[in-house]
Structure formats: structure tokens, C-alpha cells
Simulated assay, not measured.
Amino acid sequence: MDRKGLILKKTNKRLALAGLSTAALLLLSGCVQTHRVNGILVPTQAAQHGFIYTWLVRPMSDFIDLFAHNMHLGYGLGIILVTLIIRLLILPLGLNQAYKSTYMQEKMAYLQPVFAPLNERLKNATTSEEKMAAQQALMQAQKDNGVNMLSSIGCLPMLIQWPFFIALYNAAMYTPGIMASTFMGINLAKPSLILTIISGVLYFLQTWISTFGMSDEQKKTSKTMLIMSPAMIVVFSFMAPAAAALYWAVGGLVIVIQQVIITFIMKPNMKKKIDAEFKTNPPKVMDAPKDVTPNAVQENFKAITSQPNATEQKHATKKSGRNAGKQKRD
């Protein structure tokens, strides 16, 4: 896969994850059935005994109450502290996955001169045989140089994070007392334009920082994510009570910190590591693979069949000898 294809694949993966995350959020947040009491959405009695509420939302609500009631910090600070604690606990998972993905991307970029001729051969292939031969050659070159893009693909961090995120989101929405509280003059029961703007800016900042060090081609491909991610958060925050928007804003701050670590610490060190790795073991340039296209096969077949076999050569030699002897006697 060439660099442009890799960037496109990465962007498509991000869009797919964003879509999956959106669907999961809407699905799991909808698992807690609600009804209005005095104009406020609260979980129904049935929902309060359901699996999602019992095992995810209620423990997270109790965690928020620990700061809000027991420590007398209020629900606003309670949401902020719980969100920060959970986000920071799972931060190593996100950084680990980002490290693997970024390492392979930087390695692919370093080895681009090695893969370029093979990618060109694959691009110019016109038959299935040619494509198969070019793909095999490219895969072998990647294997010889220690490139395995599958090692950077994993859903485990996402699967581990989602129960916490869903619990936090619903706890911020439905913890008794939150909807009657304020934070810095902001009514946590109603949508907040200020928190919506803060959330959108933070998620835009995260995607913008991720473009640092990218080529113009990479930046062009990443424009979609630069708009899509903050736009989704703005819509979610504006449609939800300020308590949920506060959760998104605090989460956005942690994501910005994570992106700063990836862009300004991980990537430079990774490039030095790759340079040292290939200085010790230079990249392996694969020889041009054997041509197995139909035209080549036909030409080889004609060349072979046009040559006389051993029996024909023997008869031809004998005949030539008899003719030579006859001419000598004459």
C-alpha cells in the first residue's frame, strides 16, 4: 500500500470509528429509559433496575456523589474530577495503541523509497496475474523490513473505554441532584452554549495538533476529520444538558493532552528510533519478482517449443553427418 493509500485508509478508519462511536453512544445512552418529572428527564423505575443502570450508571453516580456530597464540592466539580480520574486511568491504553499505529506509519514513510517501485508495479498491473505477483512482492518486502500494519489495529482499548464513557455520560445526565444544580452560574439541567463552544474548540484543537508534522498530502486527506470530530461533539453537547456537555469538555481536555504527547514526544523519538534501527540493519530491497503475466508465459512457451528437443537434435546431427559423408564421396 502506498503512502497516499495508507493515509486514506487511516482517515477512513477514523471516520468508521467515529461513526461506530456515535452509534454506540446513541444506542447505549438510549438503553436507560427515561420519562419527564416536572420537565426533567429521569430514569424510569424499570430502567433503574436494568443492567446498564445497575452496573454502570449507579456506581458512577455514587462516585460523583462522593465528591459532590461527602466532600461538599458540588456536582459540577464532582463531574470534572470523576471524568479526569477515569480518563487518566485509561490514558495509557490510548497512548499504547497510538504508539503502535504511529510507529508503523512512520516506518512505512521511512521505507517509501523501497516500496515505491512495487507500488508502481501494482498500480500499473492490468491483469489478475500481474496484480497477484505485485501484491506478493509488496507483502514480502513489508515482511522483510518488519512492517505489519495489522499489529497497529486493535479494538481492545475502545472496548475497554466505552463502558466508562457510557457510565459517565448517563451518570452526568441522570444522577439525582445534578439536574437541580449549577456550576459557575451554568444550569446543569439545560444546554449550555458556553460549554458547547469549549467542547468544540478542544476537539478541533486535538485534530489540528494531530496534523503537525504531516505533509501537504496528509493534511489534505485529514481535513475531513478536522471538521467531523468537533462538529459531532458540538451537536452532542448542544442537544444534551450542560452536565453532559461538561463531561465532553473535560474529556476533550484530556484528549488534547494525549495528542500533544503523541505529536511532540512520541513521534520525534520514534523517528530517531527508526533511523537507528535501519542504520544498524539497512532496509532490504527486494529483487524484481518473476514475471508471471500471460504474455510472458506465452513468450517463454514459444521460446521453449521453438527449440528442437534432444531426439530431434540427435536425428538432425545424424542426418547432417550422412549428408556430409555423401557429399565427400561425390
Rank of each mutant, 00 (worst) to 15 (best):
G94D: 13
R121M: 14
T102N: 11
Y75G: 05
N96Y: 14
G94C: 01
T83F: 06
G74F: 11
R87L: 00
Q97L: 14
K107P: 06
I85E: 03
I79H: 10
I80N: 02
M108F: 11
A98R: 08
M108C: 11
I86R: 00
Q105A: 13
G78A: 12
G78L: 09
T126I: 11
T127M: 05
L91C: 04
Y110H: 15
K107T: 12
K100F: 01
L93F: 10
P113I: 08
P117I: 02
M108H: 09
Y110N: 07
G74E: 12
L91E: 06
K123T: 13
T83E: 12
I79L: 13
R87P: 01
S101R: 14
Q112Y: 09
V114Q: 10
K100E: 05
E129K: 11
Q97H: 12
R121D: 10
L81M: 06
Q97C: 03
L95M: 07
R87H: 12
S128V: 14
L77N: 10
Y99A: 14
L93W: 04
E129V: 02
Y99R: 15
L91D: 03
I85F: 12
M104T: 08
Q97T: 11
S128D: 15
Y103Q: 03
Y75Q: 08
G76C: 14
L88N: 05
